[in-house]
Write a protein that binds this DNA or RNA. Structure first.
Lengths: 188, 188
DNA sequence: GGCAGCATATGATTGAAATCATATTGCGAT
DNA sequence: ATCGCAATATGATTTCAATCATATGCTGCC
């Protein structure tokens, strides 16, 4: 089992950053310093449209990284705005580029990236399923219902009502068991 | 500009594979040989549900790779089925793992992976936009309308009719120009 | 214990996108 | 040239998920 790749970065390359709500971590066009890890709070990456509209291109959650591609870029290509106060860590791009010379880091990074890409591809397939019932079933098969149904519904890009109804239908049709309130399992 | 990472893999580790329609490239549970690059044709990655339903978890297009995570895994975790005849190249997992010792490969791979992750995150945000008109606008801002409107609509997970209607509305509202049939540009 | 707040449910209504239908345009093959 | 086919485009209808409404169970807390 390979470790989290960023554990292999020297701590001198890590800069803690505290983000208050509304803080702009970086602007589009700023020279890149590195990638970021969200420890707590939430950060939105946004691009400004031609008429000034703001388009969210990513919502970074606690425990995830963002702006990884900035390591290979001279400037940031979007804005990063803190939408929930928290703590970030910035990882210096030079340190990351240097770390790729360490095969252990390179493999750990490659592994994590490959898994994330697979997971995202699957999410794109799942949210592309039109019928709510089919989407819920696909989500269950993918193991996305680990926490609450509300959270599950959000991942599926469905209203929680539609999700509850689909779950009930799947239970009625015998494809899913509902041993207790809020718990649903695939029937094998 | 870094090269395509797989150009740095020795050609002895590449195995051409011809796929006829319906051919199973690998099965879930098979020991992993490596990742695949689709040269022509299309491959679906599928997982079998508890009742035998087949859930597509990825549609691999020509010019893309799939099963990258298999390099770090002992067995494949899904089936790969050729849905359009074509040519694949299998890249030996040992060669990929070895190549991570080459910093040039590691950086090229990391760069490509980071960009793909960013692009996929953006796609997930875009398909999560509910209103067709907003989704089309987000897609235009993201530069997803390069080919035909039909292809654009498919990327947005919208019917092409809804996409045409949204485009017309955006043109009427002056947010988009339609210099000629099939061509739409953001008004700056 | 009782209250507040949230997750779990489910019914009724609405709205918007899918679907179905129909033209038109443009382009490549014959 | 013209035939067929796919992309473009738009109107009519249907479907189904969002929304609104309401109720209950569970948990934390004062």
């Amino acid at each position: 089992m390979l470790p989290n790749p960023f554990d292999l970065i020297p701590s001198s390359a890590l800069r803690p950053i505290s983000g208050a709500i509304g803080d702009v971590v970086f602007h589009q066009g700023d020279p890149t310093h590195g990638l970021y890890v969200v420890q707590t709070g939430r950060v939105h990456l946004e691009r400004v449209g031609p008429n000034g509209e703001r388009f969210i291109i990513h919502r970074a959650q606690a425990g995830t990284s963002f702006a990884e591609a900035s390591v290979f870029s001279e400037v940031y290509h979007c804005d990063a705005v803190c939408v929930e106060a928290g703590a970030l860590i910035r990882i210096d791009k030079a340190a990351v580029l240097a770390a790729f010379a360490d095969p252990a880091f390179a493999r750990a990074y490659g592994r994590q990236a490959a898994q994330q890409i697979q997971a995202q591809r699957q999410m794109l397939e799942i949210v592309g399923v039109r019928r709510a019932e089919d989407r819920v079933m696909a989500g269950l098969v993918a193991g996305l219902l680990d926490g609450s149904v509300v959270e599950f519904a959000a991942r599926l890009q469905l209203s929680h009502e539609a999700t509850y109804r689909s779950l009930r239908k799947l239970v009625q049709d015998g494809r899913v068991t509902n041993p207790t309130r809020g718990i649903y399992h695939l029937r094998p």
